[in-house]
Design a protein around this nucleic acid. Structure first.
Length: 220
DNA sequence: CACCAGGCAAGTA
DNA sequence: TACTTGCATGGT
């Protein structure tokens, strides 16, 4: 596929989705820590359930670095229960906190200060943080121009034949990073819009949906 | 009732 | 490397 073609098409898709859904206001959170915790909690989980878990954490006054580090893992698991996989995710949150303390003296400021690619590698080395979670942290908490890929992105863009359906994460991510200006605002909104499209229209595994606005856009 | 959600890691061959 | 399975609640 040619670069210029994608560049145009991706931007057109972006414009179309933006006109349709408007600004999504991502990431819905008060602090960077809340974004990071939310990114872990939302792994393969509906956001509505993550919200319940976040509410529990806030009511317990546990959603800050000090308290979250102090709280026992079992207790943490109990608070995030509505988000599912709560034992696993409690461990993953703890893994991140241990990393942050060990490598950056508990300072998110310090963590986001250095080289983005190096930080991405570090995040990926934490058990429980994979590519999507790492990139969500970098983009939404760190304001770094890193494109976030998720299941909807693969489903939608492979369905519309922009990419092979079994393309891996990095391949899919390159499609966007190579054909879009590395703009934080754009990356932020685009990913959020893709999720919105996935939730509303391109649901489930049906081959193609006639209501999909991207489909109507084709025929360049 | 079945299926899905803003994934990831560990085990197996 | 390429599959498969466990993790778990809650909405549709």
């Amino acid at each position: 596929m040619k670069r210029t073609k994608h560049k145009k098409s991706l931007l057109r898709i972006y414009d179309l989705l933006y006109k349709r859904f408007g600004p999504r206001g991502w990431w819905p959170a008060d602090t960077r820590l809340e974004i990071i915790v939310g990114a872990i909690l939302t792994q393969n989980t509906a956001w509505v359930n993550v919200e319940k878990a976040i509410v529990n954490l806030k009511k317990a006054r546990a959603l800050d670095l000090k308290q979250l580090s102090r709280i026992p893992e079992k207790k943490l698991a109990g608070l995030i229960r509505p988000a599912g996989y709560y034992n696993i995710k409690a461990g993953r949150i703890k893994n991140f906190l241990t990393f942050l303390d060990g490598e950056y003296k508990n300072s998110l400021e310090k963590m986001f200060k250095g080289n983005t690619r190096a930080l991405r590698k570090e995040l990926l080395s934490i058990k429980g943080i994979g590519p999507e979670t790492a990139d969500s942290i970098l983009l939404y908490a760190g304001k770094k121009p890193v494109f976030v890929v998720d299941a909807y992105t693969r489903r939608i863009f492979s369905r519309h034949r922009y990419i092979d359906e079994d393309a891996d994460y990095d391949h899919l991510q390159r499609l966007f990073s190579r054909n879009l200006a590395p703009n934080v605002r754009l990356f932020n909104e685009f990913h959020a819009l893709i999720v919105e499209l996935g939730k509303n229209i391109c649901k489930s595994k049906k081959p193609l949906c006639n209501k999909c606005p991207i489909r109507r856009m084709r025929h360049d």
